[in-house]
Every structure is written in structure tokens, then in C-alpha cells.
Design a binder for these strands. Structure first.
Lengths: 191, 191
DNA sequence: CACAGTAATGGCACTCGACGCCAAAAAGAT
DNA sequence: ATCTTTTTGGCGTCGAGTGCCATTACTGTG
């Protein structure tokens, strides 16, 4: 009952793979949606049914990973101090199996080093920040739009991006370690 | 010797004024560059010589205000603790004369509430963050790309935006107070 | 097997931002 | 009056993104 009508011609994964291949060859800016469509062997119009925009392709299925993020936070015992709970969740969210390492690195490098994608990221990150804000709000009996939850969301994001930048700059560095170091840096700065 | 050739047909200020008028009427997205050009009474092509992109119009002269920001930091005595020096500079940078209040508020509201501008802002903020990173680096004997300077830049920005969001949400609130409160929130969260 | 129902595809046309190119306009200088 | 300089603005082009709609390729039924 679910497989009626014309079958799909491609998939998110296939488009992503083709796109990354071309991005690696020619750079993000000089690859057009028409190029990607041709590479996949599908109509240009169809690409826009799989990804809202060219900028969204490097993000893959990010939105659906946010449920996992919410779950991680929800499972955290309430006796864990708030800041530690958030920090642990951020660490867990960014843990990837070893075999996903090079693709994840390529993806993050592309996102963090391409101006158009840096800009677009804000919109994607907004949902991520909201997940943190909602958690902080629920633990503190506040609204997600109150100062503390909003601020923790923004600052956590800033720290995570900062850590990722270090991770990309230093080969073979460990993201978890860098996240902790970045947090420690901030604590040192504020005291 | 400086005023040869055909005289200019408009100015940044005039374009900005016309653009804001239209944005207020119809919203940012539904105003085209052609609309603005017509409102100013100038060719569409000319607009792109005054502003790199439509997204840059709301930013006005931001880039040139960064020199002021640098100056504020440079003038801070070295015996002021680092975090306080940065916080003070951020406050000073965001102090506007009372008569510039409504336009500044409109500008910030537009920037912070329009998705396309939120995204574009990252690119503008990068220079702002760099100013802070350079200051922190010089005070600590580090490189601007090291973890601490970069992190302080990112976090300061996150706090400033968070404060601005509160400022826009609550009529008649004081930005300086909100900046301090946001910073206090963060300190409370981390301790 | 033919035929209805269904859902994805992809071509076409269009809007809009952005950019390169270049002739025309409008001044000052000689 | 002519030369030089500088800005203007029209034209053409590219690429992202969208609405529209006929076409395609399935599934299920009689």
C-alpha cells in the first residue's frame, strides 16, 4: 500500500554522493545544480524535491538527527549538573563511528570553509540551538525564549563550532578532547 | 583634482533610506533590487556598485565602524582584566546616541528577524569576531587563530546577539543592562 | 489483459540576484 | 572646443529557486 505510483528515481544518499564528488573536484561554487542532476542522471527539477536548496545538500539528513540529540538530553539523569548534562550531550551528539570519519570530516570542512555554507548554517543550527534551549528551559522551569536557555544554546553552539575549527586545523585531533578544551578555555577566561 | 568625471547619482545613505522605506512597507523578501533602484531614481546596475548585495544594504557602514571598535579596545588599559575589557568594549561599541535609537532598532530587528539576513550576518560578524580575537591574542601573547582568542570572539558574539534578541523582545529595555545580564547568566550557568 | 488510480518525474517558463561588458553621460582640465 | 576622467546604466548572461502540468511507471482491481 505504500509503494504505489511511479518509483523514485534517486535518493538523498545518491544525490549527496554525486554532489560531494563534484564539490571535491571543482569546488562548491562552481558546481551547478544542473551539473549534479546530470551526474545523478536525473532531472534538475527533481533535485529540488530532495533538497530545498543547493546549500542544504552538504547537510544531508541533519534535521532527522536532532531527534537523537533530543533523546540524548532526555535520557540524562536530572542529578547531573546542567552544564555537564549539556556538555555531555554535545559530545555524544558529535560521536561518529570510526568508519564514518573521513566523510564526516569532509562534510564539516566543506560547511565550515565555504562562505555560502557558513552563512546558510545559521538556519540549520537554529534548530540545534532550540533543542538545547528547550532542555535548559525544562530543567530550570523557564521558557525556551528566556535569557538563560537562549544564551546557553547560543554559547554551546559557539563552543562546538570553535572546537570543530580546531579539529579541522589539526590532523588526527580528537573532537571530544577539543570540545572539553574549548569549554575549559571559556571557564578560564571568565574566572 | 578629486572631483573629475561624471558626478555620483546617489549615496549609500540615500539608497539605505529608500530601501528601509520599502522594506517597512512590503517586507525584505518582496522588495526587489529593481524596486529600490526605481525608488532611488537610479539604474539597477548602479545599486550593485554601492552595495555588494541586497543583503548588505541593511548593514550600511558596518565595516567602517569596526575601526572604532578596534580603537576602543586599543585604548583600554592593560590592567583591566581581559574579560572585563572585552565586555566594556562590546558595550561601548553598541552605544548609540539617543536620536539614532529608532533607526538602529529597526535595522537590528530587520537583520535579526529576516532569515536571509540572519544567514548573511555570519559573514559580516566574522570581521567583528576577528577584532576581538586579535585583541585577546595580543593581550595573551597568542595567535588570533588559537583556541582562546577564537573562542572568546565566538562566545562574545553569541552573547551580544542573545542580548539584542532580548532587547528587541522587550520594548524600552536597555541594551547595556541586557548585555550584562546575559554575561551574568552565562557565569551562573558555568559555576 | 485492459483499465483505473496513484505518485514521482522532468521539461518549460518565469522571477530575481548578481556580474561582465561597454557605450553614453557629465563633469573638470587644457 | 576638445581631451580626460569617472560614473552611470542598459544589455546580455548565468544560476538558484518555484509553479505548473503533461508524462511516466508503477500497483491493484475486474
Amino acid at each position: 500500500m505504500s509503494s504505489r505510483g511511479r518509483p523514485v528515481a534517486t535518493s538523498h544518499a545518491q544525490i549527496e554522493a554525486a554532489a560531494f564528488r563534484l564539490f571535491a573536484e571543482r569546488g562548491f561554487e562552481s558546481v551547478t545544480m544542473a551539473d549534479i542532476a546530470a551526474e545523478v542522471g536525473v532531472g534538475r527539477r527533481t533535485l529540488f524535491r530532495y533538497f530545498e536548496s543547493k546549500n542544504d545538500i552538504p547537510w544531508g539528513q541533519f534535521a532527522s538527527t536532532l531527534d537523537g540529540f533530543r533523546a540524548i538530553l532526555a535520557e540524562t539523569p536530572d542529578d547531573v549538573p546542567l552544564a555537564e548534562a549539556v556538555q555531555r550531550a554535545v559530545l555524544a551528539f558529535n560521536e561518529y563511528p570510526a568508519d564514518a570519519y573521513p566523510p564526516h570530516r569532509d562534510r564539516m570542512r566543506l560547511i565550515l570553509e565555504t562562505p555560502a555554507l557558513q552563512a546558510h548554517s545559521v538556519l540549520r543550527y537554529a534548530e540545534w540551538r532550540a533543542v538545547i534551549a528547550e532542555y535548559v528551559a525544562s530543567r530550570c522551569g523557564l521558557l525556551p525564549t528566556d535569557t538563560l536557555p537562549r544564551t546557553v544554546g547560543s554559547v554551546s553552539l559557539a563552543l562546538a563550532i570553535s572546537a570543530y575549527e580546531g579539529w579541522l586545523a589539526v590532523p588526527d585531533s580528537d573532537l571530544a578532547t577539543l570540545l572539553d578544551e574549548t569549554m575549559a578555555s571559556l571557564r578560564g577566561y571568565l574566572s
